[in-house]
């Protein structure tokens, strides 16, 4: 499943932030998204995930192939690790959560309430959720925040295994994960303001 983006322009809060974005995400490949803070990486990921409409351009490659992980993990503190994962597994219609528990070393924590986990453990649980979605294209927004070096390695291994099975990933991060993929720096795609005398342009 190839994700093709052509001449994409996106807005945040009604203000254009990025424009002229074109790239292709092929199976087995990863793209590392780079760019200064506030450039619109999160907005780009949200747009690709189908949470907001693009201003211009096309996104081809079905939306329902994408699994998206935002800054927040969507965990319920009063549910256990297993319950949290099982819920998302049944929403996405997959059955087994065991591989996800294994990949992120969550087996010992399986019966703990998510509210009692440390920040890094929560993050691991949030990333384990990607595995139970069963979707081929991963969109990850700063996935390594609050992970220790060991856990970062765990995450990189999980992504590598995912790529090995023909999946793909678009990852906004500033850490070098040692993945097989190219770097996409969106710094040069910063939207230029429209001419000031265009009323509708100034209006938007």
């Amino acid at each position: 499943m190839t994700l093709t983006v052509t001449d994409l322009a996106i807005t945040r809060g009604g203000v254009p932030v990025l424009e002229g974005l074109s790239f292709e995400l092929r199976p087995g490949r990863a793209i590392i998204l780079r760019g200064p803070n506030g450039i619109g990486k999160t907005t780009l990921l949200r747009t690709l995930a189908g949470l907001q409409p693009p201003l211009e351009g096309h996104i081809d490659g079905a939306e329902d192939q994408i699994a998206y992980a935002s800054h927040s993990d969507g965990l319920k503190p009063t549910l256990t690790v297993t319950e949290n994962l099982t819920f998302w597994a049944s929403v996405f219609g997959t059955s087994s959560i065991q591989p996800a528990l294994n990949a992120f070393a969550l087996n010992e924590l399986a019966d703990r309430h998510a509210g009692n986990l440390s920040a890094g453990q929560k993050r691991r649980l949030g990333l384990a959720r990607m595995l139970v979605t069963g979707r081929p294209i991963w969109m990850l927004d700063e996935p390594t925040v609050s992970l220790d070096r060991h856990a970062v390695q765990m995450f990189a291994d999980a992504v590598r295994a995912h790529l090995g099975q023909g999946g793909s990933a678009l990852i906004a991060t500033h850490i070098d994960l040692g993945l097989d993929g190219e770097v996409l720096d969106v710094g040069s795609n910063k939207a230029k303001p429209k001419p000031i005398d265009d009323f509708d342009g100034g209006f938007l």
């Binding site: 009604g14 203000v15 303001p193 009323f199 100034g202 209006f203």
Partner: peptide, 8 residues
């Protein structure tokens, strides 16, 4: 329009 100009 003022809001848009300020945002710009």
């Amino acid at each position: 329009r003022i809001k848009a100009l300020l945002a710009r």
